[in-house]
Simulated scan of single mutants.
Amino acid sequence: MPVAPSPLPPRGEAAPHIAMVAGETSGDLLAGLLLNGLKARWPNLQSGGIGGPQMVRRGFDAWWPSEKLAVRGYVEVLRHYREIAGIREQLKNRLLSAPGQRPDVFIGVDAPDFNLGLEAALKADGIRTVQFVCPSIWAWRADRVEKIRRSVDHVLCIFPFEPALLATHGIAATYVGHPLAAVIPMQPNRQTARRTLGLHDEDTVVAILPGSRKSEIEYLALRFFQAAALVKRAKPAIKFIVPAIPALKILIERLADEAGVRADVQIVAGQSHAVLAACDVTLIASGTATLEAALFKRPMVIAYNMNWLSWQIMRRKQLQPWVGLPNILCRDFVVPELLQDAATPRALADALLQWVDAKSSAPEKITAVQQRFTQLHALLQRDTSQLATDAIQKILET
């Protein structure tokens, strides 16, 4: 149970009260960038709800930590359902009933399974609701459209094709670009990143990113490290580096040790952007991190593994042949995807070695990927904080 926080301070200079919920690391990052724009517009902005360190750094009052919502997969969610449902009910009651807590607008950042139900209840009680990051109805679970329409007043879309799709269903939306496209430089500085991490210019570096959730790491990290062992056997000079969320660093170290590669893998706390800037190729869990890798123009092998039942349910709801965000946005298998039973250590190692070998034998293959990702970067690069803040201000004025 969280410690009961103090009430939000009184309003000042017409600054709005904003409630927000961001789940897991990627949502915390997006919400932190959004808060930059909101606080630039309203310096006395007051905000509270569920969030992580990036949001807290911007003055957000985190009543619960965002990691409480960092659960993925049907079966995994069921195991944590009682706690998560309890948090949502407490938050709803607080926003609707607690003195001084009723917000002018609620902003749900990603986490649609948690946020849409909460937004529906708040909207029914007259609170304006905004969903930042459209649920992926174009990729799977198209049946969510009706729930989105019922739950939100406006959707802030991070991909350019989404507003037109939502408009066909009568849902107001604004394309605001992807915040990461403005943060990540168009031409990342590999040399600086390597110096920061103690790597040499001539090193061949493989970044291993097994996910930001404990459940992802439990399903993926061991096979990722087993793949690294096979790659190391074929190419002994290769360097491996893993950016770990500090709270999960010990678990990652244990799994690297179990795979017999602890001495061969450099595990650093955080610094995922430095790691992606420094690497030649990455073995990476499907999710927001794959888009970050694409924005860093890095070849990658996308992989995922989850509870068998969750996988069976998810694949039946899938609408497109791709799972990785870079492939979905490029509408092509620009980089390989190895999912569930296909994500064996041997297959992962072979896919990685193809990229490693291409560095010397087929550099045009790497150049082609970098060109596709540069085009994608330009498409997603907008002043997201400004555009999102403008849209939220219009909603507040209605």
Rank of each mutant, 00 (worst) to 15 (best):
M1K: 02
P2H: 08
A4S: 12
S6M: 13
P9D: 14
A19N: 09
M20I: 15
V21F: 03
A22S: 15
S26C: 13
L29P: 00
L34Y: 05
L38M: 12
P43L: 04
I50H: 05
I50L: 14
P53T: 09
D61K: 00
K68A: 13
Y74L: 15
E76A: 15
I84S: 09
R88V: 12
S97L: 08
A98H: 04
Q101S: 12
P103R: 05
F106V: 04
I107G: 08
F114T: 08
A121M: 06
L122R: 03
L122K: 07
G126H: 05
I127C: 08
V130N: 02
V130K: 03
C134Y: 02
W140S: 10
R141G: 00
R141C: 02
S151I: 13
V152R: 02
V155Y: 07
L156V: 04
F161H: 14
L166K: 03
G170D: 09
G177V: 12
H178T: 07
L180A: 09
A181C: 09
I184D: 02
M186I: 07
Q191C: 10
A193I: 12
A193P: 08
A193G: 11
R195S: 12
T196V: 13
L199F: 12
K214F: 05
E216F: 11
E216S: 10
I217H: 02
I217K: 01
I217W: 01
I217T: 01
Y219C: 03
A221P: 03
A221D: 02
A227S: 04
L230C: 01
R233Q: 14
I238A: 11
K239Q: 14
K239M: 10
F240I: 09
V242N: 01
A244D: 06
L248A: 06
I250C: 06
E258C: 02
V261W: 00
Q266Y: 01
I267L: 15
Q271S: 08
H273T: 06
T290F: 00
A293D: 08
L295M: 14
F296E: 06
K297A: 15
R298C: 15
I302G: 10
N305P: 00
W308E: 12
S310L: 13
S310A: 11
W311M: 09
M314Y: 14
P321T: 10
W322Y: 15
G324L: 05
G324A: 12
L325N: 05
V334K: 05
P336K: 10
A343V: 02
A347F: 07
L348S: 06
L348P: 05
A351N: 04
L353A: 09
L353V: 12
W355F: 14
D357T: 14
S360W: 08
S361H: 14
A362V: 07
T374V: 10
S385A: 15
Q386V: 13
L387W: 02
A388L: 07
A388E: 07
L396V: 07
E397Y: 00
T398A: 01
